[in-house]
Design a protein around this nucleic acid. Structure first.
Length: 669
DNA sequence: GGCTCCTCATCTCT
DNA sequence: CAGAGATGAGGAGC
């Protein structure tokens, strides 16, 4: 198809060696679109999508005699000549690479300004309807067609499973849209897609707590809070229940978002001075007195009635200077209100809110971490400043504030794998020959080609979606050290601590907030074989074993929500050339302290670092969902397939599980 | 339909 | 080249 934006920056598809691309095809077609709960492998229904297939599966239906989307349905990916559909998406997908570092490819076709076909073209550029915008496509193709699996009742009132499922589906879609051409407004686009397809919950406005949302939960955009009913205003800082038509009731405040940029905010974690809304100066408007209406009236009314108001603290995201992070800090009560002159000299409403006692720390942790980092207050129970002895670029503290144990047993800290010659997988590969940063869609790049044309990561930080295998540029690839396809080799990104848990020995957690998809660490240790390990397996609890049985779960984006063909969906199950055993008993990194959970917040992904004419499989850990500061990091250890592990149809691990999750299977390992 | 909102992500200018 | 300012899109509620 002519005139497709982005095409001009990518080599002509006819020039590819199609056999290379088609090699990848089998990997993409192994897996059903969505696992059906009743037919899945053991342990299907583990988080995040919950035990009910009603929240995971989807099916198409065609109400009102609507035309079924057939092969004839206009699809931007399809040309009349129909090249193999399997390799079309990457070609269409990639926008002009963002100019980064000194990559030569980034300057060739770099467009200035907003490209045609982007959202802006909707109104202005009606003469070029070649590529409808994403939202138009979504409405056209999926309105009334896509079954989101969320019932009308669940849309009104949510549960913990539903909330985390909605947030995960949102972020998967957001990451995918960022990865392909809609990077500009990926957040808004993702939200639009989910909302128009009914993927949301807790839409009923309510005072007080919201089902499935806990104090301390973090969010990375206002729209996320909107999707799960914590704060339903995308822009306004005050949310409230309006009076019913015909009644003379006044509005009642439900939640506020503190932006942290007004006077008196964000200092004391137990109280907050909040400014009313309205009266702000605008380009076309002078500042004016605020009026006692809308949110201001609602807060006033809540003050008199004494109802709790949810408070969300907005802060700068430490990982991104332009980004914001929102911390749900629980319920506050409004203690007083007054009017004062603002900077502009106009009347501004002020409200003092005091945190309801007895809630776990949330914003309090945030403030505490800042003080620990700046050395203003010492970390309670600190045993060792840095257990890595400088091996990692960021220190990892050792902390015990529960008992007198002085630390875990001795081991040597290493940051990656140790392996002998026998474990090298000899392949005829020398990595890529790119200079600068490898670019998505550039099938001249060996490493990109191995990834099916995708750059599997976003901004060199986030895993976009799980894959059977990820191929990183290795140390001998000539691309720059900041190449966005080098992620797990770049070390720890978060300030972490090894800490003593109440009942699970030592554990790992982060002082920093961790956004969904973030790379956390790899599993460092000695690569061993079965025989070698069998000799000391009894006491070696620090083994990572890829041959165990792992819970199946859906983490990747749903093609329908990003207007892609489900047939192109990449399977999430790993695909290792041979089983991999890593022992971190004597040599290891922070990963050896990550405990098992049946409701984990971390997943693992096999990664091969190319180059040197050999490839070694690494195990890399990524965040399943947003992880608040000081929350323990856990992953699913799986269950070993030994003869004693089988008991009828149920698999039993060797170790008793203390994860405390409602979905706890009771054992693991 | 028009207006507003303690926004979001980008581009442009300094 | 970082930081500030400009910009237009965006959803929901009134």
């Amino acid at each position: 198809m002519e005139g497709v934006p982005g095409m001009n920056t990518v080599p002509n598809p006819n020039h590819y060696d199609k056999s290379i691309v088609l090699d990848i095809k089998p990997l993409r077609s192994l897996r059903p679109v969505f696992p059906n709960g009743s037919e899945g492998p053991p342990f299907v229904g583990c988080p995040p999508f919950g035990p009910s297939s009603s929240t995971t599966g989807y099916s198409h239906f065609f109400p009102f005699g609507a035309q079924q989307p057939t092969q004839d349905t206009p699809d931007l990916n399809q040309t009349q000549d129909t090249p193999p559909p399997s390799f079309v998406p990457p070609l269409r997908s990639y926008r002009t690479p963002t100019p980064v570092s000194n990559g030569p490819s980034s300057s060739t076709g770099a467009k200035r300004g907003r490209p045609k076909g982007s959202v802006n073209a909707k109104k202005k550029d009606k003469t070029v309807p070649k590529e409808p915008t994403l939202d138009v496509q979504v409405v056209k193709r999926f309105s009334g067609v896509f079954d989101c699996g969320i019932s009308a009742a669940e849309r009104e009132d949510g549960t913990g499973d539903l909330v985390s499922s909605v947030l995960m589906r949102f972020d998967a879609v957001r990451r995918r849209l960022s990865q392909v051409e809609y990077a500009k407004a990926a957040t808004a686009k993702a939200a639009g897609s989910l909302m128009s397809n009914g993927v949301r919950t807790n839409m009923k406005k309510r005072v007080g707590t919201v089902p499935g949302i806990e104090v301390g939960d973090i969010f990375f955009s206002r729209i996320e809070m909107c999707l799960v009913g914590l704060h339903m205003q995308t822009m306004a800082g005050i949310d409230y229940i309006t009076s019913k038509a015909g009644s003379d009731e006044e509005p009642l405040a439900t939640s506020i978002v503190s932006a942290g940029r007004y006077d008196g905010e964000a200092q004391d974690p137990e109280s907050l001075i909040y400014s009313g809304q309205g009266g702000n100066a605008d380009k076309n408007k002078q500042a004016s007195d605020q009026k006692l209406e809308r949110g201001n009236l609602a807060l006033e009314r809540s003050l008199r009635k004494g109802n709790g108001v949810r408070v969300i603290r907005g802060e700068e995201d430490p990982a991104s200077k332009t980004g914001k992070i929102y911390i749900y800090d629980g319920l506050y009560s409004i203690s007083e209100s007054w009017v004062e002159k603002g900077k502009s000299g106009c009347n501004t409403f002020k409200y003092k809110l005091v945190r309801v006692p007895g809630q776990p720390p949330a914003f309090g942790y945030w403030k505490a971490v800042h003080k620990w980092k700046e050395g203003l207050t010492p970390r309670t129970g600190l045993i060792l400043q840095d257990i890595t002895s400088g091996v990692e670029s960021k220190p990892v503290s050792l902390v015990n504030d529960v008992d007198n144990e002085k630390g875990p047993s001795y081991f040597t800290y290493i940051s990656t794998l140790k392996y002998s010659e026998t474990f090298r997988i000899i392949q005829n590969t020398a990595g890529c020959s790119c200079r600068g940063s490898c670019a998505p869609g550039d099938l001249n790049c060996y490493c990109i080609r191995k990834n099916g044309g995708d750059l599997p990561y976003l901004y060199g930080v986030f895993l976009v979606s799980r894959r059977p295998m990820i191929y990183e540029c290795g140390p001998t690839c000539p691309c720059h050290a900041s190449c966005k396809n080098k992620v797990i080799q770049t070390g720890l990104k978060f300030r972490m601590e090894v800490f003593k848990t109440a009942n699970r020995g030592w554990g790992l957690r982060s002082w920093d907030p961790i956004r969904a998809g973030s790379f956390i660490c790899e599993y460092a240790g000695e690569v061993k074989d079965k025989g070698e390990l069998r000799m000391d397996q009894e006491e070696d609890e620090y083994v990572f074993d890829t041959s165990r049985v792992y819970s199946s779960f859906k983490w990747n984006y749903e093609p329908a929500l990003v207007d892609e063909d489900p047939a192109d969906e990449i399977p999430e199950e790993f695909n290792l050339p041979s089983p991999l055993l890593i022992s971190a008993k004597n040599f290891g990194n922070v990963a050896r302290f990550m405990n098992h959970s049946c409701s984990p917040n971390v997943l693992w992904q096999p990664v091969i670092c190319e180059g040197n004419g050999e490839s070694v499989v690494h195990i890399a850990f990524f965040a399943i969902r947003h992880i608040p500061p000081m929350t323990e990091l856990t992953y699913d250890y799986g269950v070993a397939l030994t003869s004693e592990a089988r008991d009828g149809s149920v698999l039993h691990g060797k170790r008793h599980c203390n994860c405390g999750s409602v979905k706890c299977r009771g054992s693991f390992g």
